[in-house]
């Protein structure tokens, strides 16, 4: 799936007529990560792999990947599109996620 915004893909029928269709694609409103003022950051050692953050994420930017300290599944957040709403932090039952200001330098997730 391409996230390029400059290239315009038109959907045409068999005779080459333009159809008013848009395919489902990532980034229909651009790189929405730039809307963020705070970002959710995970403490992997606290995570219990309950999936609640994934279940409630309104932007579908969380994927569960086996990258925890014991090979358990932890949420990996796509900061390119995360809008920083903080729902994942609110629903986390063990406070493994916390919001930090975007003014702090970015720590690379393992």
């Amino acid at each position: 799936m391409s996230s390029s915004t400059t290239e315009r893909k038109l959907v045409v029928d068999r005779r080459g007529h333009f159809l008013p269709l848009s395919p489902s694609e990532v980034g229909s409103a651009g790189k929405t990560g730039s809307w963020r003022t705070e970002r959710p950051v995970l403490s992997p050692e606290k995570c219990t792999s309950c999936y609640l953050c994934w279940l409630y994420c309104p932007d579908d930017v969380i994927t569960m990947e086996p990258r925890g300290p014991e090979g358990n599944e932890i949420p990996v957040i796509d900061y390119e599109y995360c809008k920083g709403c903080g729902i994942c932090v609110d629903v986390c039952p063990v406070n493994a996620l916390s919001m930090i200001s975007e003014e702090e330098p970015i720590e690379i997730q393992r």
Binding site: E25, V26, S28, A29, G30, T32, D59, Y81
Partner: peptide, 9 residues
């Protein structure tokens, strides 16, 4: 799809 136009939250 990530990057849609909804408000945060």
């Amino acid at each position: 799809m990530p990057g849609h136009a909804a408000c945060p939250g």
